[in-house]
Write a protein that binds this DNA or RNA. Sequence first.
DNA 1: GATGAATGAGCGTTCATTCAT
DNA 2: TATGAATGAACGCTCATTCAT
Lengths: 206, 206, 206, 206
Amino acid sequence: MADVAYLPAGKRELTKVQNRQAILDAAREVFGELGYEAATVRDIIRRTGLAAGTFYNYYRSKEEVFAALSDDGARRFAPILKSLRGKGAFDTFVREAIVAYFEFMADEHMTWASRRPAGEPQVIVQGETPEMAAVFAEVKAAIEDAIAQGHGPVSDTEYMAGACIAVAREVCDRMLTRRPIDTAGAADFAVRMILNGLKGLPGGAH
Amino acid sequence: MADVAYLPAGKRELTKVQNRQAILDAAREVFGELGYEAATVRDIIRRTGLAAGTFYNYYRSKEEVFAALSDDGARRFAPILKSLRGKGAFDTFVREAIVAYFEFMADEHMTWASRRPAGEPQVIVQGETPEMAAVFAEVKAAIEDAIAQGHGPVSDTEYMAGACIAVAREVCDRMLTRRPIDTAGAADFAVRMILNGLKGLPGGAH
Amino acid sequence: MADVAYLPAGKRELTKVQNRQAILDAAREVFGELGYEAATVRDIIRRTGLAAGTFYNYYRSKEEVFAALSDDGARRFAPILKSLRGKGAFDTFVREAIVAYFEFMADEHMTWASRRPAGEPQVIVQGETPEMAAVFAEVKAAIEDAIAQGHGPVSDTEYMAGACIAVAREVCDRMLTRRPIDTAGAADFAVRMILNGLKGLPGGAH
Amino acid sequence: MADVAYLPAGKRELTKVQNRQAILDAAREVFGELGYEAATVRDIIRRTGLAAGTFYNYYRSKEEVFAALSDDGARRFAPILKSLRGKGAFDTFVREAIVAYFEFMADEHMTWASRRPAGEPQVIVQGETPEMAAVFAEVKAAIEDAIAQGHGPVSDTEYMAGACIAVAREVCDRMLTRRPIDTAGAADFAVRMILNGLKGLPGGAH
DNA sequence: GATGAATGAGCGTTCATTCAT
DNA sequence: TATGAATGAACGCTCATTCAT
């Protein structure tokens, strides 16, 4: 009571922020568990404990929460990546970027990939988590940047960035499904693969 | 001619085949545009112009059309791939498999990835096409097979197969969005990337 | 060939009659197994082996086959019942009618009553088999006839006929669910109950 | 009055109760007119004027509304019947049970049997009303109870209970179709018929 | 007539979204 | 703002019925 009297606006602000965050958290969980397509707005609000209508005070649709989650992920990962840019040799950059990425993903409990309800056709659908998408965008920008600055080999940059990200993403996905999660090992593999291909892997000096 | 007299059902059979094909074609398009998850049976039938119930004269569910498309894709690609297995050096196998895959996909007008109709929400959902899934499964089996038989480097085979496929898929997707479609160039890039990494690319001998 | 040449109309007639009968037989089975409401025209034609459209050359709807079955049943039972009318004392008539009815139903494999798919709400739905309905109509007419001719007690004839039929029907239904089917015992019970009520049953002289 | 100020949800609650009741009423009518099997959820919601989805805010299925109606009926009739059990002679029990049942049904405007809208196909389908089913279950239990306790004649109890209920139900159905509704006369007939059969009816001492 | 594929109304159900409170 | 019931479009699917062959 007293609180309300002293901080009516503050309380409001707080709950507003809290609700927004609650929705984001719920959405993260739901997208992770059901996948983007299968997830419904109802699933999300149900998990927040809020009323159905309240969702629409914060986001206009499932797409919008998804975008918000992406922003969130990007906002937290971008600085990490930025601090790495242009600091050293290309090899070093790649290694540090991969490590940073893998650790970020592991931190985020990004265990969402490929967990589809059983009974669906055996399609490997890339678990598109909002943060993943955002982080990919960052990584891609960084790689293209490095290439553009002459720190990397000169080739088809679109193919290169795409291929690097594809490898990182694929290995990261698989890493996250294993226990214990071995970011160092996975990062090591990914870096070797990216820099030297299969030939660079242990036993690959054929 | 005489046959027609003996087989009055000929006309019927024809439309049956046509309808079945129309459904498959529509399904291919719809899966490509919306992705498997988002696609609905009604989307498919709407595109055929057939009545709602007609769909169920041919397939019992979305899963079933999907499977039919997969079978179709796999049936045509599997033999190509199989003929390559275990014939020569690992490098050669990789190159031939990649080339075969890229050419197959180009032939198939496999341009489905990520092309949602403009104006839709900005969510990047990987359009999973049945043929893609089927072909991936084949490629993966072949790579693991090769690795198991000692023709490839000894490392984490799951990561390896995953990474190789990821590169091939990514490059293939991008190749298919360009005009003209340059399978030779793309395959060349992919093979280099897979076998020697960025260092193996032109200008990459840092 | 020769047959066709010699008996083109005959053959036709024969198949027509056969088809009509096949549909009736199938309908009898299906109504028995699924109940009138749950039964579909498809269920019926499926069981005949005929084509879907053929059904409509003989009957216009589920209702119409049902009616045809009723006619069929009535046509066979009516003479039996008629031969009993007005021949002796009321008691005798009742007994003979009941016996005839129970035996007719047992003969007909009228085991359809109350066999609903499990999982449905626990409602005792009177298994309305076409023959049953028809036979009830006959029985009712006979009873009213007897009453009208002074062979029975003077009371509310509608209540009387209704009550007698209800008892016969109920006991018959239950009789048909038991093994072995004891028409004599059931008929004995029903006759006693109808003529003398509970007091007329063994041990009922309270 | 002050309460209203404290309970602004009052209006809401009211419409909720009203809608729930509207659905129950509609269901009662629809089950009465079409029978349980033939009735569809959409028939029910159509009659309420509510939107399709609204039904599912209250009941999950046709079965569930049916159960709710049954509970309703049973809840009101069961106590009446229970108070009669084991209190006196068997004759008295039967009479009182019948009277209670007939009066209950008359009260409930239980006029549903066999009244399909004219013009529909001539199929006699017994309109099974949930209350009827529930009440029958109670009656049956009571009768079997009485028989088991030696207050009634010893015979085939299943046949007995079945026959008694059949008579009561049949006479009740018919009673409800007449105007004015004469519960006393109908009950008198039913009791005589059940206890003494046709011989116990006026003029039946043949 | 017999055939069986095509039709489309209709069913049970879900869910994004609105709006009175 | 938060609430949560109402809404109605849409979905997957079934089935009576038609009609070209």
